[in-house]
Structure formats: structure tokens, C-alpha cells
């Protein structure tokens, strides 16, 4: 029972890493970025190359994966995404789906179409039992790492100058702009960090979710569910949503394997009907 809970939390944490960037960019710029998973994939492949080919230690490869995805994200933001900020949602959907198609094929071309894996160091493999709960070492690492990052994100958002600007911009971009906040720059920075976190999630999640060129398509729905359920106005929303989703998905498969993916889709639609702005969003709709 507790083991299932533990696995669910780890799974939820990976989802949070993957999706939190998406929810912030959506909240800030009202940008529907279906290609978010492509940045996660970039981070994953980056980790694979670093660890397997170049022999970089796994733990050192994680920040590098973050940096690489963040840089790629920044480059795309400045060159391509900035042109679609002001376009309609339909345009953004078309644009980002196009990017997904291109990313899938490009990775297939460069890295081949089969599954790849990050080779884990020995000390992260296997598991131990603590008070009757089976704890996988790797999953423990994920929980600790993602937990720390989530807390750090929350602190940055709530305490720092950057955070208060960001919150102001999310609340009302136009007024924030008027107050002299550089919303465009803020957005680019957020986009880069969001992509970097996705990349880190991709690198961490490869072990659990697998990694192949169709990654952005396969998991797009999961990201969207997290964002839908969690809302786009804070970090805590997607965080709690990811945990709920992770735990209910894992527990659903354990206790009710016949229901399969029904659980998460039903949650998503139910939440959308009940609270279209997300479960944890403030009541004020924008």
C-alpha cells in the first residue's frame, strides 16, 4: 500500500517537472505550447549522450541537461515563439504541433527510432526496505530532487524580486508592462527555465517513462492534464495536480487494472466541467 503511494509520488514528481514550465508559460503569456514535450525530449537525449557516450557522471549530467534544454528553449523563444505570442490559440496550436512533428522526425533522423536509456550508476539501482515500505533508490532520488526544486521554485516566486514581477505579469500583463516590467524579457527567462525543467524531467523520467522520438506526442496529454487540473496561476496548483495524477494513475493500475487510462481522462473532464479554470486556481477568472 505505502509502496504504491511511494511509486505514485515519484511518478507524480516526474510529471510535475515535465509540466510545470508549461503551466507557467501558459499562465503568463496565454501561450498554448503543445511542443513542451519536445524540450523534455531534448533534455533526455542530452543526458543519454553525456552519460553513455561521453562518460559524464549521471548526477553531473542532470544540470547539464537542464542547461541544454534551457538554452534550446531560449533560442526557440527568441527566434520563433515570440512571433506567435499575439496570435490566436488556434495559431499557437498549429504552430506547436508543427514543431512537435519536426522534432519527432529530427530526433529519429539523428538518434534513430528505438528506445534509448540513460545508464544509471550502481548506487542508484535497486531498492531497500524501510519500515515495510519498499523504496527504490532511484525513485527516492527523484522525489528528493523534485521536492527540493519545487520548494525552491515556490520560494523564488514568493520571495524574490523576479518572482513578484512574474506574479504581477501573470495577473495582468498589460498593467505590469505599464509599471515598467519588461514582460517580454521576463517571459523569455521563464520560458527558458520552464524548458530547462522539462529537460531535467526528461532526463530523470527516461528511466521510468522510456525515451524515444515519439516522446512529445505520447506524453503531451499527460502534461495537458496536469495543467488543466492544476490551473495556471501558481506552482502549487500543478504540483498538487501532478501528485494526484501520479498517485491515482499508479493506484488505479494496481487496484483497478481494467479501468486503464479511464481514470486520468475522467478526472480531467470532470475537473474541466466542475472548475474550468483548474482545481487549484483562484476563483477569479481572467
Amino acid at each position: 500500500m505505502l509502496t504504491i503511494l511511494f511509486d505514485g509520488i515519484a511518478y507524480g514528481m516526474v510529471l510535475f517537472m515535465l509540466a510545470c514550465g508549461l503551466s507557467v508559460t501558459l499562465g503568463l503569456m496565454n501561450l498554448v505550447n503543445l511542443a513542451h514535450g519536445a524540450f523534455a525530449m531534448a533534455g533526455g537525449y542530452c543526458a543519454v549522450v553525456l552519460v553513455n557516450r561521453l562518460g559524464v557522471p549521471f548526477l553531473a549530467a542532470l544540470p547539464l541537461a537542464f542547461l541544454a534544454s534551457a538554452l534550446i528553449g531560449l533560442a526557440f523563444e527568441r527566434t520563433l515563439y515570440r512571433h506567435v505570442h499575439r496570435k490566436s490559440h488556434l495559431d499557437q496550436v498549429l504552430f506547436t504541433i508543427g514543431l512537435v512533428f519536426m522534432a519527432v522526425v529530427a530526433v529519429d533522423y539523428v538518434a534513430g527510432s528505438s528506445q534509448v536509456f540513460v545508464q544509471l550508476p550502481d548506487y542508484l539501482q535497486g531498492r531497500f526496505t524501510l519500515l515495510g515500505v519498499g523504496i527504490g533508490r532511484y525513485r527516492l532520488l527523484i522525489i528528493v530532487l523534485c521536492g527540493v526544486i519545487a520548494v525552491a521554485l515556490q520560494l523564488v516566486l514568493m520571495r524574490s524580486r523576479f518572482g513578484s514581477r512574474l506574479r504581477a505579469a501573470v495577473d495582468d500583463a498589460r498593467v505590469a508592462q505599464g509599471l515598467g516590467i519588461n514582460v517580454g524579457g521576463l517571459f523569455a527567462a521563464t520560458f527558458a527555465v520552464g524548458s530547462g525543467l522539462a529537460g531535467l524531467g526528461g532526463a530523470l523520467g527516461a528511466e521510468i517513462l522510456g525515451l524515444d522520438p515519439s516522446f512529445p506526442l505520447k506524453y503531451m496529454v499527460y502534461f495537458l492534464v496536469v495543467v488543466t487540473v492544476g490551473g495556471t496561476s501558481s506552482i502549487t496548483g500543478p504540483f498538487l495536480a501532478s501528485l494526484i495524477l501520479g498517485i491515482s494513475d499508479v493506484a488505479g493500475k494496481y487496484y483497478l487494472p481494467d479501468l486503464g487510462a479511464f481514470v486520468i481522462y475522467t478526472i480531467m473532464i470532470a475537473v474541466l466541467i466542475w472548475r474550468p479554470q483548474g482545481l487549484f486556481a483562484r476563483a477569479a477568472a481572467r
Partner: peptide, 30 residues
Amino acid sequence: NPDFAPFLQRAADAKPDALYVFVPSGAGAI
């Protein structure tokens, strides 16, 4: 299926001598 963990947990709970697996080749590694 993204995560095999719950299924493997069920398998482990049954305490068999062996786990027989058939999945498409990519998923096998996971």
C-alpha cells in the same frame, strides 16, 4: 503504458518463481 511499476508490484505480491513477459520490443527494456 507509461509506468509498469503497479503491474510489477502485483507480480511481486504473487511471489512466483518466474515472471513471464511479452511486450513490444521498446517497452521490454522499461
